[in-house]
Design a protein around this nucleic acid. Structure first.
Lengths: 360, 360
DNA sequence: AGCGCCCATGAAAACGTTTACGTTGGCGCC
DNA sequence: GGCGCCAACGTAAACGTTTTCATGGGCGCT
């Protein structure tokens, strides 16, 4: 028994296929009586419209594609979760394609999604404006996530790396740690660069006299470990260390422990991202929290808006809010009794939107 | 400029659409010369075949759907990663739909995927054989992940919960902990039930005289914490605790620490899953490792095989191998100097297959 | 040299929808 | 009572492919 088609329903309900289509979609143009007869027939035959046929004529797939780098861990899953939730809410399907680091891989992925999606969500440190122009039909709505692309032709949604870094560095300084060192992220990485920039500016502004102290890292735990040892080996040991992401902070923490350096008593430490592990290491890690699921949700919602109002809105570059999460490692004010966390929230315009949207 | 169609290419190359189709797909039935001319024309026009039209006539979408529960964290992302990697290798697209706990939600998701996918990967504690029969056309290839469904009509791929639990309990017993308590998982959960069963059998077999000691949990950290306190309150304190998953073990560890009970000196502790956090808590947690990405990859590969050889293979129920990961918390043989981990590997048939497949 | 066969190619049908356009019939209005 | 209009419904075209079938021509074989 092959799947029932619209013709079968039409025959069953003794009407034409056109009426079936009308009854099942718009609802207008058919009598209430025949409408019911048609719906009943469709139900009886377990009729499900053939998606491909509909796509072909409609030119809409009701699917959005998510193009992601080869991403591990919590960030990835939270992002997808946010996107998926929002997509479901809007009746959109989600076609994912992760696991590609290279530009050519990404290009192949983009091309193979051509025609299967109504719009694209792209998160990739590698793609730039030229890549997009070369590989995307310009009618295809696109939202770039955490992208360095500044072109007014594309919509961009970023984590507020810069402000987060500034806030954390300021927080460390205000907690009484006179000089703050940075464990930087990988060379070409967009997030890493912005966070470093934030560090530099915060130091310049809030600790004008103090020399910068930057050691290289690449966002891996191991590089954080190396960086920690390197910092201890320097002639003047910093009073606080700001790692450009949590995994490096964790690695650094390990190096400190091995060296017998106590955190936060001897040296303060903070990270960025608020991955779950930060809560479980000892001491618990202070960090900059980004609500990743909201990030995904917002991105999808912007894209969905684009689909509905094709060229109405002009491209926007928006950033997501963040919170400073104070745990033990930064040695600011460890609330002795409570295990509860202090979180200072920095809302940007879009994250207020996030909060509103999150109520449902 | 609308996207180029096969007709445009035909005109450009001065051949019929049929020849274009042949040249671009099979390659046979067309002269080398005309083939080149056609490919050149296609290149020039940036021709990309319209996916929907092709689906319509071919009845193949080259897409597989992944139906997942509302899943957080590492497990989810690793699973998707494995699936996605394997899908890319096979030239398949991946349509994901997570975030549904309820049966009706799942039913809606299944129905809306109808016709958009060639096959389905389903991971859900909730769906049973009846659900599948009711909501799936029986021609649609399906692979069930971690499912209790025993029906010979469906292919099933499971984590080896039972053997993993048996091995860990035996390991704890052999390490000299005479009685092992279990922190069980949620009531209806399939994995939880199998792990508990493994605990029971291992105790019966390797510690025949010892009374069982089971305390309830629900896979959350908080429930593990409660369970830990409950265990300490009992008249006879067990020598080792096996938590049915890592998050509960982490919670339990917290409870022990708060009570001043030292792990592993006063009491040994082990979990299940090998989530990343296990490495970062102190003491590091011994656990049962499951290679989740492999799990996803295997599932997809089985499904892909099903697509290619529709009814050739009869439904199989297979299980994935696991490893006992010995860290500090189980107090077996903490290798003093090395931070390296001892891992005993238990390969099942399918995970050997995994190893082979992983070489590429 | 003639016959037949095979291979390259083209014409057209088919896939299952949506939708523009015709065709009815009923009803109000003059 | 006839005319026109509108709502309900049907017919058919269109979407962009793949694939079957027909047609032609070139070439090998006797």
């Amino acid at each position: 028994m092959a799947a029932a088609t619209i013709k079968d329903v039409a025959r069953e309900a003794k009407v034409s296929v056109a009426s079936v289509s009308r009854a099942l979609n718009g609802g207008s143009g058919v009598t209430e009586a025949t409408g019911q007869r048609i719906r009943a027939a469709a139900e009886r035959l377990h009729y499900i419209p053939h998606a491909a046929a509909r796509m072909l004529i409609t030119r809409r797939t009701h699917t959005i594609g998510a193009l992601l780098p080869d991403l591990y861990g919590e960030f990835f899953s939270e992002l997808i979760r946010g996107i998926d939730l929002a997509a479901r809410a809007r009746g959109l399907h989600l076609l994912v394609s992760s696991s590609h680091d290279g530009v050519d891989e990404a290009a192949a992925a983009v091309r193979s999604m051509q025609g299967r999606v109504d719009g694209l969500l792209i998160l990739s440190g590698r793609v730039d404006a030229a890549f997009l122009r070369a590989n995307l039909p310009k009618e295809l709505p696109v939202v770039l996530l955490n992208s360095a692309v500044k072109s007014p032709a594309y919509h961009v949604l970023n984590v507020n790396n810069h402000a987060g870094a500034v806030a954390m560095v300021r927080h460390l300084l205000q907690a009484g740690h006179a000089d703050v060192a940075l464990i930087a992220g990988p060379e070409g990485n967009f997030d890493a660069r912005q966070r470093e920039q934030g560090y530099r500016e915060a130091m310049a502004k809030y600790a004008p006299g103090v020399a910068l102290n930057i050691v290289a890292g690449d966002f891996t735990e191991e590089s954080g470990h190396r960086a920690g040892r390197e910092l201890l080996a320097r002639k003047t040991r910093p009073q606080a260390v700001f790692a450009a992401n949590d995994m490096m902070a964790v690695g650094c923490l390990g190096a400190f422990r091995e060296a017998g350096v106590r955190v936060p008593r001897d040296i303060a430490l903070a990270g960025f991202d608020d991955i779950p592990i930060t809560r479980y290491v000892t001491p618990a890690l202070s960090t900059v929290r980004v609500r990743i699921a909201d990030f995904g949700r917002l991105a999808l919602e912007r894209l969905a808006d684009l689909l509905e109002h094709p060229e109405q809105e002009s491209p926007t570059a928006d950033t997501l809010g963040f919170e400073i999460v104070e745990r033990e490692s930064c040695g600011a004010n460890t609330p002795t009794g409570t295990a509860e966390v202090n979180a200072k929230s920095f809302q940007s315009k879009s994250s207020q939107l996030a909060a509103r949207g999150g109520e449902r």
